[in-house]
């Protein structure tokens, strides 16, 4: 479905991503793990069109998307739930969700889809008229994911969904990610919490200073000595 080949991205003077290749197949959860500054978020931003690559290609079902503006990429079904949630704090939950559906052409179905999203996140339904900035960190993460779902993604890019959340909430968020995936959404997941990410991923790639150093199934990487040492605390 999504194929990244020879991708290089410069961030100012620095080459943050130094030629990476990876693939996400239909229906998969693929994790991209690695330390801070490895180039994970840069990769996500480039796929979404917020950054332009200096070389390489990104294709969705064979169609080149890397030179398209960000809003066109969303229309094609590549939807990102960004790091740090980036919800619109001064708008209500409902308004945030309808912004999520901004790029959709099938306006009539948006309302019924909002109800479906509320089924997945009942807490948001209770607070639908509340300003998003008043939500707690975990609720904001749920809103960010719900907002991305409203775009009817073919593939959802999830950047650090567990950041700053309590272990209990992290478990809940990962459970929801699996649920979203079961409903037919392909997921590309970027995480520092390697253990949780590898636990739900079909396949995973390890990103190390802008290059992919390892890849395999989630299980393989969970049991790999080098991954254990570097990312799982021994």
């Amino acid at each position: 479905m999504l194929k990244v080949e020879g991708l290089k991205v410069n961030y100012g003077m620095i080459e943050a991503v130094k030629g990476i290749d990876f693939e996400v197949h239909d229906g998969e959860i693929v994790a991209l793990i690695g330390a801070n500054g490895a180039g994970k978020t840069t990769t996500m931003h480039t796929i979404s069109g917020l950054l332009k690559p200096s070389a390489g290609s990104i294709t969705l079902d064979g169609k080149e998307v890397s030179r398209l503006p960000a809003h066109k990429i969303v229309e094609l079904g590549i939807v990102q739930c960004p790091e740090g949630r980036r919800i619109f704090a001064q708008q209500t939950i409902e308004e945030n969700l309808s912004l999520g559906a901004y790029a959709r052409k099938d306006r009539k179905e948006i309302e019924s889809d909002m109800e479906k999203v509320f089924d997945l996140f009942p807490i948001l339904k209770e607070r639908r008229k509340q300003l998003a900035g008043t939500l707690s960190g975990g609720e904001q993460q749920m809103l960010a994911m719900a907002r991305a779902l409203m775009a009817k993604p073919k593939i959802m890019l999830l950047d650090e969904p567990s950041m700053g959340l309590s272990p209990l909430l992290v478990k809940e968020i990962f459970y929801i990610i699996k649920d979203i995936n079961r409903q037919g959404v392909t997921v590309l997941l970027v995480e520092q919490n390697a253990k949780m990410a590898l636990g739900i991923a079909n396949r995973a790639y390890v990103l190390e200073s802008g290059k992919i150093s390892l890849s395999g199934t989630g299980e393989e990487l969970l049991n790999s000595d080098s991954v254990k040492k570097a990312y799982l605390g021994g």
Partner: peptide, 22 residues
């Protein structure tokens, strides 16, 4: 809809881009 997009842009332009707002 356009007004909401404007408010979204005023809060966070990159996040607005990720919503598909031009």
């Amino acid at each position: 809809r356009m007004g909401k997009a404007m408010r979204a842009c005023s809060e966070d332009k990159d996040a607005a881009r990720l919503m598909g707002i031009n």
